[in-house]
Design a protein around this nucleic acid. Sequence first.
DNA 1: CAAGATTGAGTCGTCAATCTTA
DNA 2: TAAGATTGACGACTCAATCTTG
Lengths: 144, 144
Amino acid sequence: MNETGALPKAGLFSLLHAADAAQAHVESRLAAVGLSLPKLAALHALSRAGESLPLGQLAEHLSCVKSNITQLVDRLEADGLVSREPDPNDRRSRLAVMTPTGRRAFEEGMRIQQQTEGELFAGLTPDEAQQLAVLIQKLEQRAR
Amino acid sequence: MNETGALPKAGLFSLLHAADAAQAHVESRLAAVGLSLPKLAALHALSRAGESLPLGQLAEHLSCVKSNITQLVDRLEADGLVSREPDPNDRRSRLAVMTPTGRRAFEEGMRIQQQTEGELFAGLTPDEAQQLAVLIQKLEQRAR
DNA sequence: CAAGATTGAGTCGTCAATCTTA
DNA sequence: TAAGATTGACGACTCAATCTTG
């Protein structure tokens, strides 16, 4: 009946909904090793940085506010995955340090995350994944 | 050096990050009328349903748990945008009813949301928006 | 007992105010 | 005073337990 309608509308809501679903999907798998995506991301940042980082830098790596990191590290510490240690260079600063338990959880978590992500994207051809990356990036650029 | 690397990797993280950015962008505009995206979505559901809904049905429309709606409606009620009224058909049930103030906020909010969404997607050709919709949908299907 | 709603506890995020150290 | 971290209050979400009504 027309050329412009009758097709699946892109829209903000479908994007947000899909992202939510993907996140929930991964987190449900990650729960098997007691990790959430934010916790895994924090351990990932610590791992890349050589097992430890000042809290402020951790906040930068995770693109969030410092008070959030205070609380996230509280929970990671309660889980025994990270410990807070004094920064020898600056007495105001505290270092988040990955514990051996944390490293093991991180490795298992990364394995699960990558496998789940693989399954999620297995429905897309390499070409489609590439297109998606480009479109996503354009959108994000506009939102900045 | 290779055929598979060297290109922008799609990945779960870029999707989640972009969705977050888009959401934050819209919410920053919506703040001008005192609305958040969840509040706007609730008003939207009420509007479509003819200004009122039992809380349980509102939860279904918003695809979330009932206890979340209890609290969201608490906040909407505190804002004067919605009121709780008894359900004449079932004394267990309570109706969320949009107030006149709520209707005005909803209309302004929808205008802002649509305008902002338009700006966000203005960087994409209709074809690209179409592709994005399809890819997003495929992803979400896998996450179910 | 089932269903509708609420409450309490926990995660994850924000912002504004505060405390300590440089 | 600035910078690093924390605290308190709040928004938005989850789940498990509870209360009321059917």
